[in-house]
């Protein structure tokens, strides 16, 4: 566990009777981009709020950059930057003032502040709108301002809670380019939550899946894909319900998932031939309508561990 910049041990958090985070352990290595994935209500934001000193730690221990979060929150705040999940902007300030204010409370020297603000406004393509009031911006523009604000300070650890929600593809790409750059050049560790599996797959070194407050899996994207089975068959039959019961008992199959379009068969290894599959179904008078061999994607990993479809994200 050398070079773990974030270390979480036995962390739990309840809101009254609701257990939001349930005895989780994980660590993030310095300089990594770490994705924290999970369905709505899984406990991602709660975990972030505990990490960034916004919630009082009820149980467990967190250290960030060697500092105990419960004991020395002030020192932790010097090492972190945050982009929150929901809009947190002052409607009555302009874009420029919003960023200036943030730079000032982080005591960025004037030169650095001005230079970074200009640079970031170009990246989010709001350079010519710098004097516009926040209240007059579109939802995506507001989000861009918040990201620019979060990236203004180059901390040791940057927390991004669904940063690119509501942004168009081009904007997402430009922002990711900048995040990769500060990650590479300034060794900024990134702790990210997202519902975009392609983002997590493409950019993160390490992925952790959480559901109902518990950690379900973690590892690199490829190791997670391998762990759920080498390949996946996507089939459509005359009786999906019965077929799923039969196939779940085959030793070659680790897991069967039903979706609106048929069945997903997660294989333990690649030894299940199509002919054996057809044979085991025809014994039970089930006809195979369709068969596709799929390579697992991160979406499959997500569904496998959380038993749910990926949440369609709602623009805040």
């Amino acid at each position: 566990m050398k070079d773990a910049i974030i270390n979480v041990e036995g962390l739990s958090h309840s809101y009254g009777k609701t257990v939001a985070v349930d005895n989780i352990y994980f660590h993030v290595e310095e300089g990594q981009i770490f994705s924290f994935l999970g369905p709505n209500g899984a406990g991602k934001t709660t975990t972030i709020n505990l990490l960034i000193t916004l919630l009082r730690i009820q149980k467990g221990q967190i250290t960030i950059s060697g500092v105990n979060v419960a004991k020395n929150p002030d020192a932790v705040r010097r090492n972190i930057g945050v982009v929150f999940q929901d809009h947190r902007l002052d409607r009555d300030l302009t874009i420029w003032e919003t960023l200036e204010f943030h730079g000032k409370i982080h005591s960025l020297p004037k030169e650095t502040r001005r230079q970074r603000i200009t640079e970031l406004l170009n990246i989010v393509e709001l350079g010519d709108k710098r004097n516009a009031f926040i209240k007059n911006l579109s939802g995506g523009m507001k989000r861009s301002v918040e990201i620019a604000r979060g990236l203004l300070v180059h901390p040791k650890v940057l927390f991004l809670d669904e940063p690119t929600i509501g942004l168009d593809t081009k904007a997402r790409q430009r922002i990711w380019h900048y995040i990769k750059q500060i990650n590479r050049e300034e060794n900024v560790t990134v702790f990210l939550t997202t519902h975009y599996m392609d983002e997590a797959d493409q950019y993160s070194h390490e992925i952790c899946i959480i559901d109902k407050g518990k950690i379900m899996a973690n590892g690199s994207s490829s190791s997670l894909k391998n762990a759920i089975g080498k390949d996946i068959y996507h089939i459509k039959t005359t009786d999906d319900l019965k077929a799923s019961q039969i196939l779940a008992n085959l030793p070659e199959i680790s897991h069967v998932e039903k979706n609106s379009n048929g069945l997903l068969l997660y294989l333990k290894n690649n030894e299940l031939s199509a002919s054996k599959l057809v044979k085991s179904l025809t014994i039970h008078q089930i006809k195979l309508g369709n068969l596709n061999l799929l390579k697992p994607t991160l979406d499959d990993v997500f569904i496998y561990y959380t038993g749910r479809k990926i949440d369609s994200t709602v623009d805040a």
């Binding site: 000193t53 929150f84 947190r88 943030h102």
Partner: peptide, 20 residues
């Protein structure tokens, strides 16, 4: 209002002492 509109969160996670 800062609390209600969530701006306070961005301020209190900054290294600035709260007394400020």
């Amino acid at each position: 209002f800062d609390k209600q509109y969530g701006l306070m969160k961005t301020i209190v996670v900054s290294p600035m002492p709260r007394s400020q």
